[in-house]
């Protein structure tokens, strides 16, 4: 069955996914809003940057983050000058990496939801004396709820399933950076297959349950206007 280090990895994984998802919902909302509404020529470029983690191998992201966040990298120099130290091998570093890595999985569903709402409800709210901020909270957010649900589930699940990036910048430190996927990898590498099976099967069950939940709550992913 699962050992104490396995449980520690599971707890750490959920902690990482939870913190990352929360941060992403907060950060992703203005990005998604801008992408959904802008007519700027930069829309394509920004959208492409956000989507990069979908196509890039995690090792590429991990490698660049390792270099950038290291003591010789630009981000590393910044965090050091702010007294934060360097981020690789820390939980905070994993959160930063996961935020970048899971960004499109949160931004895109929210962006799609915002786009599906269209102009009209915003105009209607404006003619009923609602300021733009008021409109956002009283009309846009409730109407984008299915998008937020999808974003939360995907962002969380994708972070739980993250491996390559964590491997590159985590340093496999128990309780700090050793998440479930790395733990499974260790078990496999160490030829400890029985142990690997317990965790791996758990991941399969978890992922299935999450997706099932998503499809049940949000059958089409679309909203009636």
């Amino acid at each position: 069955m699962l050992t104490a280090t396995d449980w520690s990895a599971i707890r750490l994984t959920f902690e990482l996914a939870g913190v990352t998802t929360l941060l992403l919902l907060v950060l992703g909302t203005p990005i998604a809003w801008w992408l959904a509404r802008t007519r700027s020529a930069w829309k394509g470029a920004v959208g492409a940057v956000v989507a990069l983690p979908i196509v890039l191998p995690p090792t590429v992201i991990g490698f660049y983050l390792l270099v950038a966040m290291g003591p010789n990298g630009s981000v590393g120099k910044l965090t050091e000058s702010l007294g934060l130290g360097v981020l690789p091998f820390t939980f905070a570093g994993l959160v930063v990496a996961s935020v970048f890595y899971s960004l499109p999985f949160v931004v895109q569903p929210i962006q799609n939801a915002f786009e599906a709402i269209g102009e009209r409800p915003l105009e209607a709210a404006a003619t009923l004396r609602a300021s733009p901020m008021d409109t956002f909270f009283s009309v846009v957010l409730p109407l984008a709820r299915p998008g937020y649900l999808t974003a939360t589930v995907l962002g969380f699940a994708h972070t739980v399933g993250e491996f390559g990036v964590v491997l590159m910048i985590g340093g496999n430190i128990p309780d700090k950076t050793r998440v479930v996927s790395v733990q499974i990898y260790d078990h496999v590498e160490a030829m400890d297959y029985a142990q690997a099976h317990w965790l791996a099967a758990g991941m399969v069950v978890f992922s299935f349950a999450v997706l099932l939940l998503l499809y049940t709550l949000n059958p089409t992913g679309r909203r009636r206007a």
Partner: peptide, 19 residues
């Protein structure tokens, strides 16, 4: 801006808030 104009607007489709 629109929200600071004391007007009422009726759209062609009622455009009620579905939620």
């Amino acid at each position: 801006p629109t929200w600071q104009r004391p007007l009422g607007y009726v759209f062609q489709e009622a455009s009620l808030f579905p939620h």
